Simulated assay, not measured.
Amino acid sequence: MVVKAELEKLNIPYTYVKIGEANTIGEISQEQSEQLDIGLKKSGLLLMDDKRSILVEKIKSAIIELVHYTDDQIKVNLSDYLSEQLNHDYTYMANLFSEVKGTTIEKFYLTHKIERVKELIVYDELNLSEIAYKMHYSSVAHLSNQFKKYTGLTPSHFKKLKHKRRDTLEDV
């Protein structure tokens, strides 16, 4: 809504606006770009026009959508999924992501999976077997091993803790 309002205020025609992306019709002037940037910053948003940064943000968004907001299991491996979703060679995306973020796509993905598992543990609506199934782990043991590797705690020990439960998505 904020992006649409700013585009309309500056009379910049667009075809669509969705989370993390807006497609404008034609070129926008330097002055319009600067005004848009100022307007977006007032709302805590950033204008990104660097193609590399945009692709990294699209990779992050695709992973976050997959892990946190979709219950579907992808039918292919993560590299094929991202290549298909973003229309780029995975090797290029992996190298770019590592260069920009200082971590691998796989590590980013697994970190988000563990954060989602933490969330499900805290909600206390599913047992560990159900969480493992929902998060597409091959077994509870696999989930527990990966959880311990990333958090230093077993899932049951984590559940007993009353503090330091989860990180925000922005901190992951």
Results as ranks from 00 to 15, higher is better:
120 L>W: 02
102 G>I: 02
125 E>M: 10
74 I>Q: 01
129 S>H: 10
71 D>S: 11
88 H>I: 04
95 N>K: 15
74 I>A: 05
96 L>D: 01
71 D>I: 08
117 V>W: 04
80 D>Y: 08
90 Y>I: 12
112 H>G: 04
59 I>N: 00
69 Y>V: 01
102 G>E: 03
122 V>C: 13
68 H>A: 11
93 M>Q: 03
84 E>V: 03
76 V>Q: 05
106 E>T: 12
93 M>A: 12
95 N>I: 08
85 Q>K: 15
110 L>S: 10
63 I>L: 01
92 Y>T: 06
97 F>C: 05
62 A>P: 01
121 I>E: 01
58 K>F: 05
125 E>C: 08
67 V>K: 03
98 S>E: 13
111 T>H: 09
117 V>S: 06
70 T>I: 08
60 K>F: 02
115 E>K: 08
64 I>K: 14
127 N>R: 09
74 I>P: 00
69 Y>D: 11
81 Y>A: 12
124 D>C: 07
69 Y>I: 03
123 Y>E: 15
66 L>F: 05
105 I>S: 08
124 D>S: 14
83 S>D: 02
129 S>T: 13
98 S>T: 11
106 E>F: 06
95 N>H: 12
57 E>P: 00
99 E>L: 07
124 D>F: 00
62 A>N: 11
84 E>I: 03
100 V>E: 10
108 F>T: 07
128 L>H: 06
70 T>V: 11
74 I>R: 08
103 T>G: 04
82 L>C: 00
104 T>A: 08
115 E>Y: 09
111 T>K: 12
101 K>V: 06
99 E>S: 11
97 F>Y: 01
58 K>T: 02
57 E>Q: 15
66 L>V: 06
67 V>Y: 00
87 N>C: 06
77 N>V: 05
126 L>A: 05
72 D>S: 08
128 L>T: 09
76 V>C: 04
103 T>Q: 10
120 L>V: 02
66 L>C: 11
62 A>H: 04
125 E>L: 10
124 D>G: 14
63 I>R: 00
123 Y>P: 00
66 L>Y: 10
